[in-house]
Design a protein around this nucleic acid. Structure first.
Lengths: 218, 218
DNA sequence: CCGTATCCAATAAGATACTG
DNA sequence: CAGTATCTTATTGGATACGG
């Protein structure tokens, strides 16, 4: 076992949550991991979806996450053949942390949903905020496209899953900026803010599967 | 006096998780909240269960949490009539965040369970690590005592709950240092490390309800 | 005992420029 | 594009002193 050269600040606390904070608790770390939850990403793609992060800090965070076994560097398959970062299996298992954090904070009076939001954030929010009773029994394949980021979604017996990429068998595809998805799904904005291709009724049904928790005091 | 002269660093990100990190993501903040999960605590009690925190930082964190509506200052009922801090209802709802963080980090190869641990951490770990199938159908009232901190526990139809205090109707009481509870429950150490009063069989059964998730790679 | 206030040194983060 | 290097600023933690 190698001695950590720069003895990272620890909590000296056996509590699992304390160790979790040692692994993921530095500024930006969980948000970097969030962006990796749906598949490998390149450095500049991460940077552009994490507004305000500096190249230096992103480099550091990726290196730390790699050292801790949460993230690994990969070479994307040909023809791309470029370097990227992806979450390890264990890294992907951190999704419930982000979900609980998001679910809890969505009740905050100080939460401002009008801020910019990344494509991955929106997709992950669907997994968090889905109302199981509304999704029960539905079986769908569809596409979500935001800018140049494409995702395939599947709804199978109430379970909702996503991955990067496209699906030829999609029943519908919804396109729009992440902010517009947020406005339509959570803000009650008209559906015209997003573009729907294919089965419009099924797409509309999909866009109605989600709900935010009530604000504190409401 | 002025605790917020500089505008707090935000993420400028509508993602709920990002806002959660703005609320709870500073160093020590979640651990302070953890210590409040089972009832009000005094400043010095918090400080002694958060080894390494400075009075200054604890003061700051409590003030920030209060400002954000997560914690409030209270005066304990007579005859104590002293000041303390307690989590608000919404603050208590953050428990699943700590649970997921702890559950995830317990799988880390770098997790060191031999470090010191607070009484509250142990109690919360019981709620996280309980194996529902083992607890199903059990109905118990009991006490847990670590140093001068007393807790009452209830197991009702698989649900495990705790609060500060004592219970005259307890079927058993288990006493010991938090580290010894950890060793017995999670480390397979002999039960003699903790002291059992009352129904020894029921206490032994209770101590066997919990299990840690497997380490990564195991 | 329960904090608050101040000062100081060590880190971490942010901004910006730059290189292979 | 994918980072480094460098400089500046902010935050942290430690020590200590102080008031209720």
């Amino acid at each position: 076992m190698s001695f950590d050269p720069a003895p990272r600040r620890r909590y000296e606390d056996a509590c699992g949550a304390a160790h979790g904070l040692e692994l993921l608790g530095d500024r930006w770390t969980m948000l970097v991991l969030r962006e990796l939850m749906l598949g490998p990403r390149r450095f500049s793609s991460l940077r552009s979806d994490l507004p305000g992060i500096s190249a230096r800090v992103l480099t550091q965070r990726l290196a730390e996450l790699e050292e801790r076994g949460v993230v690994r560097r990969v070479t994307l398959p040909p023809p791309a053949s470029v370097q990227a970062y992806e979450a390890t299996e264990w890294g992907l298992e951190a999704e419930p942390i982000l979900q609980e954090l998001g679910r809890w904070a969505a009740r905050s009076p100080s939460h401002d949903p009008s801020l910019p939001v990344s494509a991955v954030s929106i997709i992950l929010s669907f997994r968090t905020m889905i109302v199981p009773e509304r999704a029960a029994g539905l079986d769908r394949r569809f596409g979500i496209e935001m800018g140049d980021q494409q995702f395939v979604g599947r709804l199978e017996g109430g379970a909702l899953s996503f991955a990067q990429g496209a699906d030829d068998e999609a029943e519908f595809v919804i396109r729009g900026a992440p902010e517009n998805f947020a406005a339509v799904v959570y803000g009650g904005a008209p559906r015209e803010l997003v573009e729907i291709e294919g089965d419009v009724a099924a797409a509309g049904e999909f866009l109605s599967l989600f709900t935010l928790p009530p604000k504190v005091g409401a």
